[in-house]
């Protein structure tokens, strides 16, 4: 038997080299994760203190906390989820239960997946254009309804929430549709055989069966928006004064981190690191909970 020893060795060798390279690729990814988490923890933990949650953002050169920014972030995220979840849930239900393969469902699915990955800064510009810009017609209507509380025509926490809601919707639509499609048709048919109308079947059977999955989607959406900075830059803007009024410009954690990190003030840098650690801890905790829920469903 003739064995081409050279060829054999060469193949063995390239096999080893490429498999080694793929091990290195995995190490490459893990090392960056470790480096980022390490510098976040070393820089962030030393600046963590109860003051962060009590005192407000300080002027340069003085000490303070992040309380107003934390409030702004939490409030805007809650409103965004409260607005975005019902819309996303209903639209996802349409795709999975009614539209399925129809032309409208195909368009919605296509558009939704584009919005899911669209640059968030463009979403910010969109809300700026429709909400923040002082358009005479809409402004007059808004003033007539809300008076001095009109949130349109200037930067406001409401505008920020709206921008975040536009980011929440596609996430919830995608997970809702996926989760509803996993519900076995036998369940729907059993409910229908008992005489339940379609809308009743969806609300009391399919939604309930997919509950954990849908909740996962909502958690992922919260995780996604709690770090979003770009869409808030031209909507909620930021506010260096103590303000809890959502119809006015309001501070938020990501935007404060951006401003403080870009400044030259040492104390502001420290607060930025502490804020960065807070955001990362929140986001990673939410993703872990979402993952556990997903596994259980």
């Amino acid at each position: 038997m003739i064995v081409n020893r050279g060829l054999y060795l060469r193949r063995q060798f390239s096999n080893r080299v490429f498999l080694m390279l793929s091990v290195l690729a995995a190490i490459f990814g893990l090392v960056w994760l470790a480096l980022i988490l390490y510098s976040l923890i070393t820089n962030g933990v030393s600046n963590l203190s109860p003051k962060l949650f009590i005192e407000m953002t300080p002027p340069p050169g003085t000490e303070g906390g992040l309380s107003n920014a934390i409030f702004g972030s939490v409030a805007m995220s809650l409103i965004a989820v409260a607005v975005g979840t019902p819309v996303g849930l209903l639209a996802g239900t349409y795709l999975a239960e009614y539209g399925r393969h129809g032309w409208l469902a195909s368009i919605v699915r296509f558009v939704n997946d584009i919005l899911l990955s669209a640059p968030s800064i463009v979403i910010g510009l969109f809300v700026y254009e429709i909400f923040v810009v002082n358009t005479p017609g809409t402004q007059a209507v808004c003033r007539a309804i809300f008076g001095a509380w009109c949130p349109m025509g200037h930067f406001s926490g409401i505008a920020g929430s709206l921008a975040l809601a536009v980011i929440v919707v596609p996430v919830v639509v995608r997970t809702t549709e996926n989760m509803l499609l996993l519900v076995p048709n036998g369940l729907r048919e059993a409910a229908a055989a008992l005489g339940a109308p379609r809308s009743r079947v969806i609300r009391t059977v399919t939604w309930r069966a997919a509950r954990a999955g849908i909740l996962t989607g909502v958690l992922l959406a919260i995780a996604r928006i709690s770090g979003e900075t770009a869409p808030l830059l031209f909507t909620s803007l930021g506010n260096q004064f103590k303000s809890y009024d959502l119809t006015q410009p309001i501070a938020s954690l990501p935007v404060v981190i951006f401003q403080f990190a870009m400044s030259a003030d040492e104390g502001w840098h420290k607060l930025a690191w502490a804020g960065a650690l807070l955001i990362t801890a929140t986001v990673l905790t939410l993703s872990v909970i979402a993952r556990i829920l997903e596994k259980r469903s």
Partner: peptide
């Protein structure tokens, strides 16, 4: 009614997309 509501939400998604393009 329920079907209309879900369809309306689905249209909102398309409207947001169209709105982004139009406003830009």
């Amino acid at each position: 009614g329920f079907r209309g509501l879900t369809g309306f939400a689905a249209l909102l998604v398309v409207a947001a997309f169209a709105g982004v393009i139009a406003s830009l």
